[in-house]
């Protein structure tokens, strides 16, 4: 039971981060049909900025958080203005823009290498990491904070999408951007919101997961891939399905690694996802995407 509980929480923690990346990818995809291959880099920059502001400059937590948020938001605007808008203006299809986001990801990693170097740095934890027991379960505050952030961002996303007029406009653009335009909805604003909101989500996820993953500039790529798998497994058309996909992958990964072999965890998971997609090509919860056709 102890082992199970430790694995479960470790899975839920990593899964929350995959899920938040998946949610971010899904929001952006809904707005402009682009998979943002730089999304994991936002998590990485969140982690590394936490090191910079909290450890290197020794700033207080609130100041460090605000500055970190500033960095990831500036990064989102850079992605929009330096990659997305110039390509869009020239009539580039989504596939071309995806390559643009990949270039942005690699450039970001290169710049991060100059600032932080290639080695793994220790990331200051905001909350205590000593094990504690909650009933029969064993966890720590840092893990609970990540899972809490996951739930909070899911709730916030749901509120925006389903309880505001702006959210309705986002969903309409996700269904059909051209018809949304006929309603007078400007997709540019929705795209900007999606980039900024996703950067916030991923950046804060980075601050929280940093102490557990370790601060290294290479962590972004794996997170992009797993976030993307999460979105595909759950269903790319819905940010909530994408988030659920992330949790599923995180937990499966921890269980397979814990009870089986950690070397084989990733191949086994991707194999399982492939099997599931044979049966449900739009993802486990992908009826939204399917209904669109």
């Amino acid at each position: 039971m102890d082992k199970f509980s430790v694995l479960l929480f470790s899975g839920l923690t990593n899964g929350s981060v995959y899920g938040l990346v998946g949610l971010s990818l899904s929001l952006i995809y809904g707005a402009n049909r682009v998979i943002n291959f730089a999304q994991g880099e936002f998590v990485m920059i969140g982690t590394m900025s936490a090191i910079l502001f909290m450890a290197t400059y020794n700033l207080s937590l609130p100041v460090a958080l605000v500055l970190t948020l500033g960095v990831v938001l500036a990064m989102a605007l850079a992605l929009e203005f330096a990659v997305y808008l110039p390509l869009r203006r020239r009539g580039a299809p989504p596939l071309t823009i995806m390559i643009g986001t990949m270039a942005f990801a690699i450039t970001t990693m290169g710049l991060a290498l100059l600032v932080w170097g290639p080695n793994q740095l220790s990331v200051p934890n905001i909350l205590p990491m000593e094990p504690m027991t909650v009933g029969p379960l064993i966890t720590n505050w840092q893990q609970l904070a990540i899972i809490g952030a996951f739930v909070a961002f899911l709730g916030l996303t749901w509120f925006i999408l389903y309880r505001t007029s702006f959210g309705l406009a986002i969903r309409a653009t996700g269904v059909d951007p051209k018809v949304a335009l006929l309603m007078g909805i400007r997709s540019d604003r929705i795209v900007r919101f999606a980039f900024l909101f996703s950067a916030t989500v991923s950046g804060l996820a980075g601050v929280l997961i940093g102490p557990l993953l370790g601060g290294q500039i290479s962590i972004g790529v794996a997170l992009t891939v797993k976030g993307f798998m999460a979105a595909i497994l759950g269903g790319l058309g819905s940010p909530f399905a994408a988030a659920a996909g992330g949790l599923a992958i995180g937990v499966a990964e921890a269980m397979i690694a814990g009870y089986g072999n950690s070397l084989y965890a990733e191949p086994i998971i991707f194999l399982i996802i492939l099997m599931i997609l044979f049966v449900r090509p739009y993802g486990l919860l992908g009826d939204f995407e399917a209904a669109r056709r």
């Binding site: 059909d176 309603m183 909805i185 669109r292």
Partner: peptide, 19 residues
């Protein structure tokens, strides 16, 4: 017609109100 198929009738009407 080009409705927003997965959205409800009421939501479609509300989108018309966007202007």
């Amino acid at each position: 017609r080009q409705l927003f198929g997965p959205l409800t009738v009421a939501e479609n009407l509300r989108l018309g109100f966007h202007r």
